[in-house]
């Protein structure tokens, strides 16, 4: 493994916090672990605060800000050191970076802390590209994939650009283009169960567009979208499935078996 060539912001932080997110914690821990390992392989100490749980987004977007606030307040105090906070999900990162400020409001005693944290939140691929300026050495077999970026990751965090930049570094990976790339997959948190017909229609269209590319694998930086798209694909009997981008990158960086 070649040493990392940190350029980006010119800083190579020695230590970072890792915020796993609730979905990754219970449903795709491998994605979290892969992300942490990729960071560690670049000589970064990764601190995982044990008391972390969820950014509060499910309650916040469902119209329960008071409940969201209680959960978010529990997280805010976990990041006392001035280290970057890495989040393997664009929508959770967007929640912590942008929506926490609205949720807490200027009068909340934790507001200053929330503001300081906002400047330190990085979505995982964003951190690799913009801060570490990584160079990836692709050791996997040639393959064709397709990328789906979650809407909040795209619109709040610009993750579609950083994910694409990382995948472009993989020599043997061809990234195919799906129709209506920027359109939502229909997850939307509780939207998926409050408006199940609409959500299903959107998920169905998205799954179809992704599968129609003929890619072997779907890659995404967001577990919400992945569970929605994978669940839809599997229910329809398709063998085509998606994987978190951290898991995928990790698999490409390992020496061939």
């Amino acid at each position: 493994m070649p040493p990392p060539t940190p350029k980006g912001t010119g800083s190579h932080p020695g230590t970072v916090y890792f915020f796993g997110t609730c979905l990754v914690d219970l449903f795709d821990p491998l994605a979290g672990l892969s992300a942490m390992e990729i960071l560690e392989q670049r000589g970064i100490r990764v601190v995982f605060p044990d008391s972390q749980s969820c950014c509060g987004q499910p309650a916040y977007t469902s119209g329960y800000p008071a409940e969201a606030l209680k959960v978010a307040a529990q997280q805010v105090v976990l990041f006392e050191e001035d280290w970057p906070i890495i989040v393997p999900s664009g929508s959770c990162a967007g929640m912590m970076k942008h929506h926490w400020l609205r949720l807490f409001g200027k009068d909340h005693p934790l507001y200053d802390k929330v503001q300081a944290i906002a400047g330190r939140i990085y979505e995982f691929t964003e951190f690799l590209v913009k801060v570490l300026d990584v160079r990836l050495d692709d050791r996997g077999a040639p393959c064709k994939i397709v990328l789906h970026t979650s809407c909040s990751a795209r619109r709040e965090m610009g993750v579609h650009l950083t994910s694409k930049a990382l995948l472009a570094q993989l020599d043997k990976v061809e990234v195919l283009q799906q129709e209506r790339e920027a359109e939502c997959c229909g997850f939307g948190g509780t939207f998926s169960v409050r408006q199940p017909e609409l959500s299903a229609a959107m998920a169905g269209d998205k799954a179809q567009a992704l599968e129609a590319t003929g890619a072997e694998l779907l890659v995404s930086a967001d577990c919400g979208c992945l569970s929605n798209i994978n669940g839809t694909l599997a229910k329809s009997g398709s063998k085509f499935q998606g994987q978190h981008i951290a898991t995928f990158l990790k698999s490409r960086l390992e020496p061939k078996a």
Binding site: V193, S227, G231, A234
Partner: peptide, 25 residues
């Protein structure tokens, strides 16, 4: 799982949570 599983396979937790895997490591 109600409306979720009408058009999707159920959400099944992993064998171990990330919290647990991190502690093990």
């Amino acid at each position: 799982q109600g409306a979720w599983t009408r058009t999707r396979t159920p959400l099944i937790p992993a064998k171990k949570s990330l919290h647990e895997l991190v502690r093990e490591r």
